[in-house]
Simulated assay, not measured.
Amino acid sequence: MADSTAELLDMADRIGLDRRHLQHAGTGREHFDICLSRRARAVAAGAVEITMRDMARMRRERRHT
Score class of each variant (00 low, 15 high):
Arg14Ile: 02
Ala42Val: 07
Met58Pro: 01
Arg60Met: 05
Thr27Ile: 09
Glu30Thr: 13
His31Arg: 01
Arg59Glu: 13
His64Tyr: 15
Ser4Thr: 08
Arg19Cys: 01
Arg20Ile: 04
Phe32Lys: 00
Leu17Met: 04
Gly16Arg: 03
Val43Asn: 03
Asp54Ser: 04
Arg38Gln: 08
Met55Gln: 10
Ser4Gln: 05
Arg60Glu: 08
Ile15Asp: 03
Arg62Gln: 08
Thr5Leu: 09
Val43Ile: 10
Ala6Pro: 11
Phe32Ile: 04
Gly28Asn: 10
Arg57Cys: 02
Asp33Asn: 08
Ser37Glu: 13
Glu61Tyr: 11
Arg19Ile: 00
Asp18Gln: 10
Ala42Asn: 14
Glu49Gln: 07
Glu61Asn: 15
Glu49Tyr: 06
Arg19Asp: 03
Arg59Thr: 15
His24Gln: 10
Arg38Ala: 14
Arg57Lys: 08
Gly28Val: 06
Ala2Asp: 02
Thr51Pro: 00
Asp54Val: 00
Glu7Lys: 14
Ser37Asp: 09
Arg29Thr: 15
Thr5Pro: 04
Leu8Met: 11
Glu49Leu: 09
Arg19Met: 01
Glu49Arg: 12
Asp54Ala: 01
Ala42Lys: 08
Glu30Met: 08
Arg59Tyr: 13
Asp54Thr: 02
Arg38Ser: 06
Arg38Trp: 01
Leu8Phe: 06
Arg63Trp: 13
Leu17Gln: 04
Arg41Thr: 07
Met1Cys: 14
Asp33Phe: 03
Asp3His: 15
Asp13Gln: 06
Arg62Leu: 09
Leu9His: 05
Leu9Ala: 03
Arg19Ala: 05
Thr65Trp: 08
Gly26Lys: 14
Arg14Glu: 06
Met58Asn: 08
Leu36Ser: 13
Leu8Gly: 04
Arg53Thr: 15
Ala2Asn: 06
Arg19Leu: 02
Asp3Val: 12
Arg29Trp: 14
Glu7Arg: 14
Arg63Met: 13
Ala45Cys: 09
Ala47Lys: 03
